[in-house]
Amino acid sequence: MKTNIQHLLTKISLLLSNNDEERWAAAFEQLSKKLDLDYDTALSDIKHTFGGAGSFNDLVLHHKGQMLVRENNELNALQDQLYEAVTTEIINRRNR
């Protein structure tokens, strides 16, 4: 599962970086590295990026005032996959 989560984080980070969202891209790169250092804390940190005002869930990619439809659709799909993977992994680890 860790490999899948890291793969999703890398894809998200690249998508964000390619669309001038460097702050979020760097955050997800760091979270990917943190998975190797402190797995449970990293999972929790990833899940927390989805909550609250100004969260990762609220991110909308745009360029020169125009919303990037294709890129946002891709981002939304990756967000869903990441949330599902992290939530499932947290539950699985609690049930061990």
Score class of each variant (00 low, 15 high):
M1R: 06
M1C: 06
M1T: 05
M1S: 14
I5H: 03
H7G: 02
H7I: 09
L8C: 02
L8M: 05
L8W: 04
L9P: 01
T10K: 14
K11G: 04
S13K: 03
S13P: 10
S13W: 00
L14M: 10
L14E: 15
L15H: 07
L16V: 09
L16S: 10
L16P: 03
S17F: 13
S17R: 13
S17A: 14
N18W: 02
N18Q: 14
N18G: 15
N18F: 06
D20H: 11
E21G: 01
E22S: 12
R23T: 14
W24I: 06
W24E: 15
A26D: 12
A26S: 14
A27N: 13
A27G: 05
A27P: 00
A27V: 08
F28P: 04
F28Q: 02
F28A: 00
F28R: 04
E29G: 03
Q30Y: 07
Q30F: 07
Q30D: 13
L31K: 09
L31G: 02
L31P: 05
L31D: 05
S32V: 03
K33I: 05
K34G: 01
L35G: 01
D36H: 11
D36Y: 09
D36N: 15
D38L: 04
Y39L: 08
D40C: 02
D40P: 00
D40H: 09
T41I: 12
T41C: 08
L43D: 06
L43V: 03
L43S: 02
S44G: 07
S44T: 14
D45R: 06
D45T: 10
D45Q: 11
I46R: 00
I46T: 03
I46A: 05
K47I: 08
H48V: 00
T49Q: 12
T49G: 01
F50E: 05
G51S: 13
G52W: 09
A53I: 13
A53L: 12
A53G: 05
A53P: 01
G54Y: 04
G54I: 05
G54N: 13
S55F: 04
S55V: 04
F56P: 01
F56G: 02
F56R: 05
D58R: 09
V60N: 07
L61E: 09
L61C: 05
L61F: 04
H62L: 06
H62A: 15
H62D: 14
K64M: 07
G65Y: 10
G65K: 11
Q66N: 15
Q66G: 03
V69N: 06
V69G: 00
R70A: 14
E71Y: 08
E71V: 03
N72I: 05
N72R: 09
N72E: 09
N73M: 13
N73T: 07
E74T: 15
E74M: 08
E74R: 08
L78P: 01
L78C: 08
Q79T: 01
Q79V: 01
D80L: 11
D80N: 14
D80I: 01
Q81T: 06
Q81R: 12
E84P: 00
E84M: 08
A85M: 08
A85C: 03
V86G: 09
V86P: 01
T87M: 03
T87L: 07
T87P: 00
T87Q: 08
T87K: 12
T88Y: 10
T88N: 09
T88M: 03
E89N: 06
E89G: 03
I90L: 14
I91D: 10
I91A: 14
I91S: 12
R94F: 10
N95K: 11
N95E: 12
R96A: 07
R96E: 12
